[in-house]
C-alpha cells in the first residue's frame, strides 16, 4: 500500500494515534510528514519518550491532546521546541505519565486488560495532577474516567509491597511504527532496540508499518525468533527507505545532526517554522521528494557502519 493511501485510510481527524520510536531513533517520520501533508486535525496522540515525531506533529497543527512521559530530543532539543510552545500557550493539553507507566499502559492494551499495576509514582504529582479534568474524562468515552488509581496491595504485604498504582490501558485507533524489515503480509523484524513499538502495535485497532526493506516471507520465516510482530496485527505495510529520517534507523543510518539542529532553529521562530513546513512538507509530494531536498553529502555521512549500526565518527556537533 502507498503511504498516502495508508494515512488517508486509517488516520482520521480526532483519532487516537500512537507513534513508535524513542527520542532520536526510529520515529516513523515519513508517516508523520504525510499526516502533516494531509492536514489531519484534532489528533489525540500517545508516545512514551518521543522527540522528533511528536514535535513535528504538534508543530504541524495536527495534535490537540498528548499523553506522554517525555518530550525531548537529546542534545538537539532538551525540551521539544514546538511541544513547549504549544503547552505554554495553552494550545495543547498534556497528560504526563512516567516511561514505565506508558509502557505498561500499552502492554495492558496489548493484553486486553483494563489496567496494569506498577510501584512508581506514589506521592508524585504524576499521580496528583491531572491534565484531563474529571468532567472532561467522563464526557469522553475514549478516555478513562481516572488518570490512574492508587490501591493497597490486595494480597496484604505479599512481595513486600504495600501500595500499587494502577495505570489504564491505551487502545489507540491506529499505531504507526517504522521497522528495518517486513514481508508484504506484515510480519515485522526490528533490529536493535525495539523500545515499546511492539506493545504499541499490539494495543491498536489498526497498525501501519513502514519499513526500510520488504523481504520474501520465506526469508523472514527462516529465523522466526528474530521477528516480533505477526502479520495478522498489521493493516498496511509500506516500503519506505529512509522512512525514519531525520531520526536514526539502527543498521541503516544515523540521525542527521545537521537536520535536527536546523529544525530546532526553525522551530524556535514561528515564521521560520511556517516556511520550514511549506518548503519541506507541503511542497514535497512524498517522502522521496522530501529526501531529495536533503544535501547528498549529509545523507552520505549518516550511512551506518555495518560493524556498529551507526555512522562511526560522525561529527555530531
Amino acid at each position: 500500500m502507498s503511504l498516502d493511501h495508508a494515512i488517508s485510510r486509517f488516520v482520521h481527524d480526532g483519532c487516537h494515534l500512537s507513534i513508535g520510536g524513542f527520542t532520536v531513533n526510529r520515529n516513523p517520520m515519513a508517516a508523520v510528514y504525510e499526516i502533516i501533508r494531509q492536514k489531519k486535525r484534532g489528533i489525540h496522540l500517545y508516545a512514551h519518550s518521543n522527540g522528533q515525531g511528536v514535535d513535528e506533529l504538534i508543530g504541524g497543527g495536527c495534535v490537540d491532546r498528548l499523553e506522554i512521559a517525555y518530550a525531548g530530543n537529546g542534545r538537539f532539543a532538551p525540551t521539544c521546541v514546538r511541544f513547549r510552545k504549544a503547552v505554554e500557550s495553552g494550545e495543547l493539553v498534556v497528560e504526563d505519565y512516567s516511561n514505565f507507566q506508558m509502557s505498561l499502559r500499552f502492554t495492558a492494551g496489548a493484553m486486553g486488560l483494563p489496567f496494569l499495576p506498577v510501584k512508581s509514582g506514589i506521592e508524585s504529582d504524576i499521580a496528583n495532577q491531572w491534565g484531563f479534568k474529571p468532567a472532561a474524562r467522563r464526557s469522553d468515552e475514549k478516555i478513562p474516567d481516572l488518570k490512574l488509581c492508587i490501591i493497597d496491595n490486595p494480597f496484604g504485604r505479599w512481595a513486600d509491597t504495600t501500595r500499587l498504582v494502577l495505570v489504564p490501558a491505551i487502545e489507540p485507533d491506529v499505531s504507526i511504527i517504522h521497522a528495518q524489515t517486513a514481508d508484504s503480509s506484515g510480519t515485522v523484524r526490528i533490529d536493535g532496540l525495539a523500545f515499546t513499538d511492539i506493545e504499541q502495535a499490539k494495543a491498536a485497532r489498526h497498525v501501519i508499518v513502514t519499513c526500510e526493506t520488504i523481504v520474501d516471507t520465506r526469508q523472514l520465516r527462516k529465523q522466526p525468533e528474530r521477528n516480533q510482530l505477526p502479520f495478522f496485527c498489521v493493516d498496511a505495510v509500506v516500503h519506505l527507505p529512509m522512512g525514519a529520517y531525520p531520526t536514526a534507523c539502527y543498521g541503516h543510518y544515523d540521525y542527521d545532526p545537521g537536520y535536527l539542529n536546523d529544525y530546532r532553529n526553525y522551530a524556535q521562530n514561528d515564521e521560520h517554522h511556517r516556511n520550514y513546513l511549506d518548503r519541506y512538507i507541503f511542497k514535497t509530494k512524498d517522502h522521496a521528494a522530501f529526501i531529495s531536498l536533503q544535501p547528498l553529502h549529509r545523507l552520505n555521512k549518516i550511512k551506518a557502519d555495518p560493524d556498529t549500526g551507526y555512522a562511526t565518527g560522525l561529527n555530531r556537533l
Binding site: 527520542t23 542534545r75 514505565f100 532496540l193 523500545f195
Partner: peptide, 27 residues
C-alpha cells in the same frame, strides 16, 4: 559505549550490549 550517545535511544547504546530488552523489561 565507544562513542558518547546523544540520547538514551541513540544507536550508540546498542553496541556490544549483553542484551537488548524492551522498556518494560528495563524498568
Amino acid at each position: 559505549l565507544e562513542e558518547v550517545p546523544m540520547a538514551v535511544s541513540d544507536s550508540r547504546v546498542m553496541l556490544g550490549a549483553a542484551m537488548h530488552g524492551s522498556l518494560s523489561e528495563a524498568f
